[in-house]
């Protein structure tokens, strides 16, 4: 049996805010740790981020290792890998879990090779193998239609990245206490080869937990005005398929699918979307899917509850008009 003393969780912060997926990972790690009697340790890097350590403790971390330094203010592959690899080599955690954000996989992928560790990618299920106690992570492949159940047969820590929006964060528990250990950062600015010359981040929109979402695809011709209006009327969010983000018509944050957001809404209205494998995994958890498409054979109709064969530019304005008059 794999013995566990500690499970580490990478606490990703951007602009002084913890990523939601890091809290989700903390929730999952706590559940696993309680089964094997391990401690959950949050790894937090940044500048002036101590209060995030307190927040992580309320959300399930038992201890925090904090590296606080001006050179760590923004995520950079070089600096974060250097600091974290040093910590892992010194303390040998049994498992190390990351959120599968762009920065999370950038870091985990680099660390795994430096440490000589196995890395299981963007899992949607994570459990313990009964016979061995090893982590078993289900990795969606081929757009999400097939899951590969992977484990780390050698090398430590067992490393895993977790797809955002899959696991549940624990509600904050104000009474929880934990240790915060601050470590020295020995990086010198002159040793760092890369630098960020420009950074532009707005408030990231999170549509993964929206109750209602209206999704526009290539069939909109890139004109999302009807999609936006309908979303507004029903109090929902707007989503798009990947090609619309590729063309810069909509931000990556609202892209639905295997490489975008997984929805968990009650209702999704999907218009002008063909239903490619890489898209479908993004709407699989939606309770009720309405699809509008001109092509009666579109694959989206095999994955919708209500199917409307028709032109979205004719159907949606009618619908919008009716809802408008309904709301007065």
């Amino acid at each position: 049996m794999a013995g566990y003393k500690s499970i580490w969780v990478f606490l990703e912060q951007n602009e002084g805010v913890l990523e939601e997926v890091s809290l989700e990972v903390l929730g999952k790690a706590s559940e696993l740790a309680s089964k094997v009697g391990a401690e959950v340790t949050g790894i937090l890097l940044g500048h002036n981020v101590k209060r995030l350590a307190d927040e992580a403790i309320k959300r399930g971390a038992e201890s925090i290792i904090l590296a606080d330094s001006p050179v760590l203010e923004n995520y950079m592959t070089e600096t974060y890998t250097e600091v974290i690899a040093g910590l892992v080599k010194e303390r040998n955690p049994d498992a190390f879990i990351f959120g599968a954000t762009n920065n999370g996989v950038d870091l985990a992928g680099r660390l795994a090779v430096r440490l000589g560790a196995g890395l299981i990618a963007h899992v949607v299920e994570l459990e313990l193998e009964e016979e061995t106690g090893l982590l078993l992570g289900s990795v969606p492949g081929f757009g999400g239609s097939i899951l590969a159940v992977c484990k780390c047969v050698k090398g430590r820590p067992q490393m895993v990245t977790v797809r955002p929006g899959i696991f549940r964060a624990l509600p904050p528990d104000e009474s929880r206490k934990g240790r915060i250990e601050e470590v020295q950062v020995r990086l010198k600015p002159e040793d760092i080869k890369t630098r960020i010359v420009e950074k532009k981040v707005g408030k990231a929109i999170d549509i993964s937990k929206a109750e209602k979402v209206v999704i526009g695809g290539v069939g909109t011709g890139g004109d999302l005005s009807l999609i936006k209006r309908l979303a507004e009327l029903i109090g929902g969010e707007v989503g798009v398929t990947r090609p619309l983000s590729d063309q810069g018509i909509a931000p990556r944050d609202i892209m639905v699918g295997a490489t975008g957001v997984g929805l968990s809404s009650k209702l999704a209205i999907v218009a002008g979307v063909s239903g490619a494998a890489h898209f479908l995994s993004g709407i699989d958890k939606v309770e009720n899917v309405i699809a509008i498409n001109t092509d009666p054979d579109a694959n989206i109709f095999n994955h919708a509850d209500y199917c409307v064969v028709g032109d979205l530019f004719k159907i949606m304005p009618e619908l919008i008009k009716r809802i408008e008059s309904l709301k007065g």
Binding site: M76, T101, N102, N103, T194, V197, K200, V201, G202, K203
Partner: peptide, 10 residues
């Protein structure tokens, strides 16, 4: 691309 936007790295 990063969450919420982009950064330019040199």
């Amino acid at each position: 691309t990063i969450r919420g936007g982009y950064e330019v790295v040199e």
